[in-house]
Amino acid sequence: MTDTGGRSFRSVLRRFSAQAGVAFAGVAVVTAIAWPMSAASDGPARGSGPSAGGMPGPGAAARSAPGQYVAPAAPQGAGTGRDPLTADERQAAVRAALSADRPLRTQSKDVAGRAGDPQLISSALAEDTEGRTAEVRFYDYGDNTLVVKTVDLSTGKVTDSEAAKGAQPPPGVRESREAAKLLIASPQGDGLRTDYRAATGRALTGVDQLRVQGGSYAARPGDPAELRECGAHRCVRLWTRVADGPWIDTRGYVIDLSDRTVHRV
């Protein structure tokens, strides 16, 4: 806890916070949970997490008339029992996972190829455990390693750590979007751009014009040579549709996020 991760550590948190901020916009932050980095010099100040927007945090689950939408209860502070992780707990878990592993937070690469941070893939309450335990998954694009950290949220301690090559969970939202960006920018994306213009009358210039669902792709026996690394590399296949519009079949392409290349299946 004495070393400082510096800029890279903070930047992964900023990015994470920005993501969480979208998901939980408007939720005031209450840090009632264990804060493992509070003594560390390189952590963001307490309470600098998501949002701090002006809206009041919603209370307990509202009762409502049949069929009515119930506003989400406050994903803040510490969760109870089998509640999903709150935004604060997610942040604390990511912080704890990174703070205990200096190489991970300083020598990794994220999906965009930026050095320093690993790519955060997911964070969730661990299954079949007593107490509040988080499981955080990162992918280090620097050396194609999946890193899974188990964090006891009551102590802020990392209780287990696994680093594995060749393990490829489904891509996170950011990874699928990065794959779509690469496809759009690639000569292989010709068909996608043409289909998009045919469907909308407009040019396809950015990933925000699409809705993508990514699938993790592992090489199959008959795949061309350039796809053989998929599995050791992090490869993605996309289900793509025009935002609020028709599907465009992009399943014939595999995007290798590890070497940022696009291939036909």
Binding site: V22, P66, G67, Q68, V70, A71, R174
Partner: peptide, 15 residues
């Protein structure tokens, strides 16, 4: 959701 109540599902990086 006839006769029932709809609750919100948190999703990664979205509302």
């Amino acid at each position: 959701c006839p006769g029932g109540t709809i609750r919100s599902i948190p999703v990664p990086e979205g509302r």
